[in-house]
Amino acid sequence: MAKGYRARGVRQGGWGRTGLAAVVSVAYFFPVLWIILTAFKTHNDALATPPKFLFHPTIENFIAVFRRSYIKGFEAVDTGFALFFFNSIFVSASSVVIALAIGTLAAYGFSRFPLRGNDTYLFIILTTRMLPPIVVIIPIFLMFRVAGLSGGYAGVMLLYTAFNLPFAIWMMKSFFDELSGDVEDAARVDGSSETRVFSRVALPQVRAGLAATAVFGLILTWNEFLFALLLTGVGTRTVPVAMAQTIGGDIGVRWGLLAAIETLFLVPVIVVSFLLQHQLLRGVTFGTIKR
């Protein structure tokens, strides 16, 4: 399928425009490429001016992500990054899964069984995302402290779920709205209960939407820093927070180390996007490209 799009692209756009698109893409991708290259450089290569494109790659930075000595000459110790990666994956994945589960059900309800004042509810749901996080951070921090939710997994997961929910509801509702109501009615006539109409007929038709919503939610959660900084404890720290703490190191910033963390940090996002790319392509175009 993706192949089809690409082939058509070149044919219709011609090589000139395709080339232009390639140049623009490279320009966008360049910072990412730069980070990946830096991750494989020694400290001196990383700081060299003019920047080096040809160098002897090393994986010492990647080892240092997980084990290094904090003071020169001392024994290398565990940095805890394995745990931080686990935390990031665990917290993002579970909050996205929960938000998607609740959001999909809510979206189906909003789309198929509208309430009196349906749009008002939808708008109110969206307003929770209208304030910049910095505005609400202090009350949220206090609330979570009082409720005993700060420091543990439950707190961040709850918050991230709440963050992903409005987005999930709105996205999924737009996908459900696209579906033909007749198809679900046909299932009712064919003997399906409401639960089965949802699970056997409506849900399978919005798989692409689910994938797109999941990826967007994951990226949003994966990169979140501010709330993670305030609400996670030592054991539940996520990678963005740990990364920030790595910058303020001993002597100057270890760019190679930082780049190595970022490179590792990118891997899950790329893997997930790759796995879901076919669905995603349909999902992000909101069904404007048919099958």
Binding site: V183, A186, G191, V201, Q205
Partner: peptide, 19 residues
Amino acid sequence: PVQGRGIGMIFQTFALYPH
């Protein structure tokens, strides 16, 4: 309820299950 009526219906839009 619609499920128990045991009636067949052909819709103007056909309404086949696309998936």
